[in-house]
């Protein structure tokens, strides 16, 4: 799966969590723009992990602040 495919898949997965319908750009932040609390983060990360059959450890999550960084990280982890 290339980066564009990863991006489109994550866009689908994020929909139920993006309650305010915030427009997703690479620089959209999870804590600030999307207002994800820790419970939402856990559920959302679990969805991505199951979809791509990967693990995103909390140590890796700490470096992911915006949407673009998430797509990059998942793209790398699925290889």
């Amino acid at each position: 799966m290339d980066r564009a495919e990863v991006d489109s898949k994550i866009r689908t997965l994020i929909e139920p969590f993006n309650k305010k319908g915030v427009e997703l750009k690479d620089e959209t932040t999870f804590a600030g723009d999307l207002e994800f609390d820790s419970l939402t983060v856990m559920d959302f990360v679990a969805e991505i992990e199951d979809e791509f059959d990967i693990i995103i450890t909390m140590n890796q999550q700490a470096d992911i602040e915006n949407y673009g960084q998430l797509v990059d990280a998942v793209n790398k982890l699925q290889d």
Binding site: M42, A46, E49, D50, D53, I54, I55, T57, M58, N59, Q60
Partner: peptide, 27 residues
């Protein structure tokens, strides 16, 4: 204890055996 150490930390949903197994399987 996790924050003080250097291990990779992988949480799973509360009391969810399946979620725990999925994560162990991927490590």
């Amino acid at each position: 204890g996790c924050a003080m150490g250097n291990a990779e930390v992988v949480p799973f949903k509360h009391n969810d055996v399946e979620a725990m197994e999925k994560r162990l399987r991927r490590l």
